[in-house]
């Protein structure tokens, strides 16, 4: 694989400080902050106060309006039409995850890439930043350009040849 990494991506310390920076830049993005506060550090929900969130279920076109009460480890979902709504809401309030897609710069222009699996939502910006650091020589479909991005156990791979 002809990958020339101008900056290494495995600097945990740096990632840590960067993460702080990102958190700061996200200060206006209240929604994310709220969620990330709950979901940070691997599902540890040590909230003492009860929080209520409203969301629309995306599991089917029904689009049930869900009300989710979070009280410590206790998550209560109402408004759901079926059990899939409960599963959806619980994941959204405890550890929401997303596949991240972006593009990486190479000497031949930009190439699209993605995380091979969903990563915690609060790491989306960090993950994009990790890809942004790269300046690669050439890549092809399927190349892994970052292994275990941000310690998530998920890789970033190239999704196109041109």
């Amino acid at each position: 694989m002809a990958i020339k990494q101008t900056k290494t991506t495995e600097k945990n310390q740096k990632t840590q400080t960067q993460k702080l920076k990102v958190e700061k830049s996200l200060s206006q993005r209240k929604e994310i902050k709220k969620v990330s506060a709950q979901s940070a550090k691997n599902n540890v929900t040590n909230k003492t106060t009860t929080q209520t969130r409203h969301m629309i279920c995306i599991m089917c076109p029904m689009g049930c309006s869900l009300t989710v009460k979070v009280d410590g480890e206790n998550v209560e979902v109402t408004g759901n039409g079926c059990n899939r709504g409960v599963v959806f809401a619980k994941e959204e309030v405890t550890c929401p995850k997303r596949i991240v897609t972006t593009s990486v710069k190479t000497e031949h222009g930009v190439r699209s890439c993605k995380t091979t699996a969903p990563i915690p939502k609060n790491l989306i910006f960090d993950c994009v930043k990790e890809v942004e650091k790269l300046r690669l020589k050439d890549v092809k479909y399927g190349d892994i350009i970052i292994k275990n991005v941000l310690g998530t156990g998920v890789d970033v791979v190239v999704t196109a040849n041109c």
Binding site: I99, T101, S112, K114, Y141, T159, A160, N161
Partner: peptide, 10 residues
């Protein structure tokens, strides 16, 4: 499986 557009095309 869940793919991106370029992967589907590929």
């Amino acid at each position: 499986e869940e793919l991106t557009g370029p992967e589907f095309a590929h």
